[in-house]
């Protein structure tokens, strides 16, 4: 059974690249482009891990993360934040809300992101 990864990311190009990389590594990939859709898919599909962007149209990443962590059906799914927000307060906020890791996109390559994903599934 391939592991299921849900990626919630609104930038289509970045999503395309990471999806390609994940598929190449034999993951099953689910996609969402905004917060609501992301939370809905997390509940329905129960992925093994979620890659979550923070700045999203509508419900932002922090809110989605809180929802995921508050819902008993999804609270145990590890969430890795991938964002370009990089101030200490922002990182601390993400980790405090329950993310297992916080990756700044510009400082990580897709390769390194997959390495992190593998560590948590």
């Amino acid at each position: 059974m391939p592991k299921k990864i849900l990626i919630i990311e609104d930038d289509r190009y970045l999503k395309e690249l990471i999806v390609k990389k994940l598929k190449k590594e034999k993951f099953e990939v689910l996609e969402a482009v905004d917060g609501q859709e992301g939370f809905k898919k997390a509940k329905e599909e129960k992925p093994n891990l979620i890659l979550l962007d923070l700045i999203l149209p509508g419900t932002d990443g922090y809110t989605v993360l809180s929802q995921i962590k508050a819902d008993p059906e999804t609270s145990s799914i590890p969430v890795i934040i991938i964002s370009n927000l990089g101030q200490i307060q922002e990182i601390q906020k993400g980790l405090k809300l329950g993310a297992v890791d916080y990756l700044i996109k510009a400082h990580f390559t897709p390769e390194k992101i997959i390495e992190k994903v593998k560590r948590f599934v």
Partner: peptide, 22 residues
């Protein structure tokens, strides 16, 4: 503002980085 600028500037650069890297 810094937060926003960081995000806005870094996002396209991330795209370039990821694409080239792959």
């Amino acid at each position: 503002f810094v937060s926003l600028a960081a995000h806005q500037l870094r996002t396209p650069l991330s795209g370039i980085k990821w694409g080239l890297n792959m």
